[in-house]
Amino acid sequence: MARTKEFDPDAALRSALELFWRRGYEATSMADLVAHLGIGRASIYATFGNKHDLYLKALDRYAEDRDPQLLDELSRPGPALPGVRALVRRFAAEAGSEELRRNGCFVTNTAAELGPHDPEAARRVERSWEQIETLLHSALVRARTQGELPGERDPRALARLLLVLLQGLRVTGKASGDPARVRDAAEQALALLD
């Protein structure tokens, strides 16, 4: 007879995500996970696999939680540029916040820590960035079609610029104590949409 789980796997995954997000992959040991999740090592392995598997599942959960918000912000009916501007300004505000200074962005952290040498993590980072770029591109195409964006502007190139800016805001915000730095950079990039 199979034993029933004595813990909520979803809650455990969210708890692992929080720990990995705060500490990073390398600085988080299995002993840390056992203590933080409050479940045994064997249960972690049976439910999630090894530490790397658990990390990738946490990264997937982070994307699942974040992506619908981006889709909502960039797909609203009506003018498209206000959504793009609001998204960039939100990233800048978050980058200047104390919480982001402590934790950063989980995807950006993964790109810096694991991306260069972990193909599975790098694929997930790339998938996340492709999703953001696609959403920005679609919004900018809509903006150009609706006459909000000058016709000579390249929506794909602008989407890529904004993606790189958003990731740069995350990194700079984590390392800098000057919120004006990220705010000013965001506003200069947004001026390219005029």
Rank of each mutant, 00 (worst) to 15 (best):
P119D: 12
L162A: 04
G115L: 15
D53A: 13
H117T: 14
L74W: 00
L190Y: 06
R41W: 10
V84G: 11
Q131G: 14
A92M: 05
L19W: 06
L56M: 05
A92E: 02
R124I: 05
G78I: 01
K5Q: 13
K5L: 15
F20N: 07
E6K: 14
A80W: 03
A175L: 11
P150Y: 10
N50F: 06
V107F: 05
F20E: 03
A12V: 09
A86T: 02
R144F: 00
N103R: 11
G151E: 12
Y45A: 13
I44T: 04
R183N: 08
Q146I: 04
P119V: 09
A27I: 06
A189L: 02
A31R: 15
A80P: 04
E113P: 01
M30S: 01
E18P: 11
A27Y: 07
M1N: 08
G168T: 03
E98W: 11
K51F: 10
L74C: 01
G177L: 04
G40E: 13
P82K: 00
V84A: 12
D178F: 02
W21D: 10
N50C: 09
A175C: 06
E26F: 15
F48G: 09
R153D: 05
V88F: 10
E113F: 05
R66T: 13
V182H: 06
Q167Y: 08
A189G: 05
G147C: 00
A31H: 14
A95V: 07
G104F: 00
L149N: 01
A11H: 10
R144I: 00
P155F: 00
W129V: 11
H36D: 09
K174Q: 15
L165G: 07
L135W: 15
F91C: 10
D154C: 00
G147D: 00
P116S: 07
L71S: 11
A175Q: 10
L193Y: 00
Q188G: 09
G147W: 00
R89K: 14
R101E: 08
R76P: 08
P68D: 01
P116D: 14
G151K: 09
L140C: 00
E26N: 11
A46I: 08
